[in-house]
């Protein structure tokens, strides 16, 4: 039966699959409902105290802006704060949830408001693509993808009978595993442009306000990919070499070339064995992304540190940790599925 037919044939689903489907659908429905009745920015403005409203009125006629309005919408829950600076500064904040607005200046409301605000900032919502969670996901996914492809060639190179290729591959792996990723990134971000006389930001048009970040991202992507390739190469090599030699012999006895044997017999079997350590590598890299703080990029860790320093709220790490846990959980789930899919023949 085709995969699609199996999917449509709901009656014959496994009981556990049905349970999962119901829970997921119910959650999605709840999220959709809560988002639909979430408090809008206008509702929040209406809720503001008279003094805030007065300032808003004043600002309409004056060129001086003194009020800062923050509106963070996370879908199911939103947060608004009104702040002014100077003497008699106003600080007012509200949390909106399920159609109601709650004060967020003290107690549980304050905690909830801060969490929403911090999560919003770490997710990088409303910011550019290279910020917060988006930066972390983009950098890890791209560099793991590039690194994985490179690693297959490095691994085959290392086990190659050609001494030169083997030594070059080994040297590459030795270098990138033997030096800190941070310095590798520094070399690519600072030294390479210095030596070749260009700057990373100049890769993008001069008028692009994000050119600095995009340039730094390219440098980080190169460093992370090169580094991931070295670590993955060892995983790939170990997996390839763990395949029974009898498989090579059978392929040779059938007249297959080395390339055919690797492509159709050895590598397909070894991929399943690579999945758990590759998942491990992926999860480690998600956290290594925090090194990009050193070249002016802001990932989850960097943002939480910044908030901690500027606002002195040690609770900022709660949403940071939760975000990492959610990403890791999703990733582990996906890799587990892939492993299961690849194990059908066992």
């Amino acid at each position: 039966m085709s995969r699609f037919k199996k999917l449509v044939d709901i009656k014959n689903w496994k009981r556990s699959s049905k349970t999962v489907a119901i829970v997921v659908l119910a959650t999605l429905a709840l999220v959709f409902l809560l988002s639909a009745i979430n408090v809008s920015k206008q509702d929040m403005l209406d809720q503001a105290s008279d003094s805030v409203k007065q300032i808003i009125e004043d600002e309409k006629t004056s060129s001086r802006k003194s009020l800062t309005i923050t509106y963070n919408n996370l879908g199911v829950v939103s947060y608004t704060s009104f702040t002014t600076s100077g003497a008699n500064a106003i600080r007012e904040s509200y949390v909106g949830f399920a159609g109601s607005i709650y004060g967020a200046d003290e107690g549980a409301g304050k905690f909830a408001g801060q969490m929403v605000n911090y999560t919003y900032r770490m997710l990088g919502t409303g910011e550019n693509l290279l910020h917060g969670v988006k930066l972390t996901l983009l950098l890890t996914t791209l560099s793991m993808a590039i690194g994985a492809v490179m690693s297959v060639f490095l691994a085959l190179g290392k086990i190659s009978e050609n001494k030169l290729i083997s030594r070059l591959s080994s040297a590459y792996i030795f270098f990138f595993r033997g030096t800190p990723l941070l310095i590798q990134m520094f070399v690519i971000y600072f030294s390479v442009p210095g030596i070749f006389g260009f700057s990373w930001r100049s890769l993008f048009s001069a008028g692009d306000p994000e050119a600095v970040y995009k340039g730094a991202f390219i440098a980080a992507l190169i460093a992370f990919s090169l580094n991931a390739a070295a670590y993955c190469a060892e995983i790939v090599r170990a997996a390839i070499q763990s395949i029974d030699k009898g498989q090579n012999e059978a392929a040779k006895a059938l007249g297959m070339s080395y390339g055919q044997m690797m492509r159709t017999i050895v590598i397909p079997q070894s991929i399943r064995r690579m999945i758990p350590p590759l998942c491990n590598e992926f999860v480690m890299m998600i956290k290594d992304v925090s090194l990009v703080f050193a070249i002016s990029l802001m990932d989850i860790t960097t943002i939480s540190k910044t908030i901690m320093t500027s606002e002195g709220n040690y609770l900022v790490f709660v949403p940071a940790l939760l975000i990492y846990l959610v990403i890791t959980a999703i990733l582990t789930f996906i890799f587990g599925k892939i492993e299961k899919r690849l194990s059908i023949y066992e």
Partner: peptide, 8 residues
């Protein structure tokens, strides 16, 4: 072969 060496 003695140990079959089929492609699993």
């Amino acid at each position: 072969f003695q140990r079959f060496n089929l492609f699993p």
